[in-house]
Nucleic acid binder design. Structure first.
Lengths: 132, 132
DNA sequence: GATATTGTAGATACAATAAGTCTGTAATTG
DNA sequence: CAATTACAGACTTATTGTATCTACAATATC
């Protein structure tokens, strides 16, 4: 199991948007070029962030993407959940008596990871690095 | 991203082996039947645990699998690493200046999860549940 | 030692997911 | 209106996960 590349693209793009102007949008062309990925594909990924209410898209000439929520509110977990989904990483589909004790442990472990991702905001990195 | 089913099979099998006799091996036939998976496939998974030095296989009539290490030493993380591999869940392959700050955060998060999995031993569950 | 029993390795098949492309459409600006 | 930009959906390709099958090697028991 691995995080998908889409998550990597999403995180890097968000970091750029956080560092950029909150009013003037950045075109997907530019965002994609910096990361060496095709604009249409990146657009498809970013649309998920739009639907999650994190960013906003502006059509037409000089359009692009810009933040929608406050910088301060956007956590790593938000972005990851928007891309990877929110279902548990581990699911036991056996029919035990009731709860699967193994799954319980796995869930606890996952929550430790999520806690860290929820407590870390993009802002925490933004100042030191303005590009990519 | 999801943990594979193989990890689920491995964890459940290990729980059975921990609860079973440390001398008399259990056949893969029986282990597989309990979990509703084919014996040859489970065997393939268990072979990875053998190579990781956690369990031992015994060929021939009345053969099967049994623990090799001490019950007390076997953590969730050991089993998961044996099946899923030990590489990071997140890898940024862009060429930044030096270290990717996003990757750094992701790595920390992963370590939180691993810490919990390393601190939880199969033994912790074994007493309350002897089957599956 | 022959035979039945059990795990092992390798080839192969199938399915699901990830990763990316292409094309046409809709919205906006100038 | 023309140029620019994002969006949606169908489609393709590559990779990984999930098995199955078969021949082989090791061991126990008679």
């Amino acid at each position: 199991m691995k995080f998908t590349k889409a998550t990597n693209y999403a995180l890097h793009t968000m970091l750029m948007l956080v560092a950029a102007s909150p009013v003037k949008p950045i075109g997907v062309q530019q965002l994609a070029e910096t990361q060496g990925v095709s604009p249409t594909y990146l657009s498809k990924i970013l649309t998920r962030l739009v639907k999650a209410g994190m960013i906003e898209s502006v059509s037409g000439a000089n359009g692009g993407y810009r933040l929608f929520r406050n910088k301060e509110d956007i956590t790593f977990l938000d972005i990851i959940h928007a891309i990877e989904g929110t279902t548990s990483l581990f699911e036991c589909n056996f029919v035990h008596g009731d709860e699967c004790s193994i799954q319980a442990v796995m869930k606890e472990a996952e929550e430790k990871m999520e806690l860290h991702l929820r407590n870390t905001k993009l802002m925490d990195l933004a100042p030191m690095q303005t590009k990519v």
